[in-house]
Amino acid sequence: MQELVAFDWWLLFVRWCHIASGVMWIGHLWYFNFTQTPTMPKIPTELRPGVAKYILPEALFWFRWGAMFTIIFGLILAWMNGYLWSAIKIGIGDHSTHNTAIGIGMWLGTIMWFNVWFIIWPNQKKNIGITPASPDEIKVAARTAGLASRVNTMLSIPMLYCMAGVHFY
């Protein structure tokens, strides 16, 4: 019972939630980029709506809310660890490689979170028919969302280096 109220237990709990949400988010991001997008052109035309109408909306739900909970738990975790402000200013003036590393990772993650909620999701809403759009607008929206998703895949590599590697700094 003592452990349940101990600060360290809550630290572990928030860290666990942060990692689980992050797996949900980056797992879907990599699914889109490594599996779905390269496979779509190979799927017979009559079967494509199965992906676009059923799998994509569901995957986008877990993807964007995974991103939201990752950043929420991440910020709480940094605050509980006492380095939130130092990480926001990427450790400048604090002579801490640890806070610089986690700070750069946090900023990369924040850019990715912004891409998800303010570029990918609004454009995908046109693509899956939630926001009304003309065929030309849908084409532009799909291209924009696709590129932002690729940017996030690129950024996920250094972001994960910072997150996983921070304990070595």
Binding site: P38, T97, T100, I104, L108, R150, T153, L155, I157, Y161
Partner: peptide, 30 residues
């Protein structure tokens, strides 16, 4: 010129290049 992000392979390579930049940045700042 083709956008390198249209290729998954080039996206991954760019991700690793960016990681090297981040490592150098960590040591330069701290």
């Amino acid at each position: 010129m083709k956008n390198p992000l249209d290729s998954l392979g080039q996206t991954i390579v760019l991700g690793f290049v960016l990681t090297v930049v981040v490592v150098l940045l960590i040591h330069a700042i701290a």
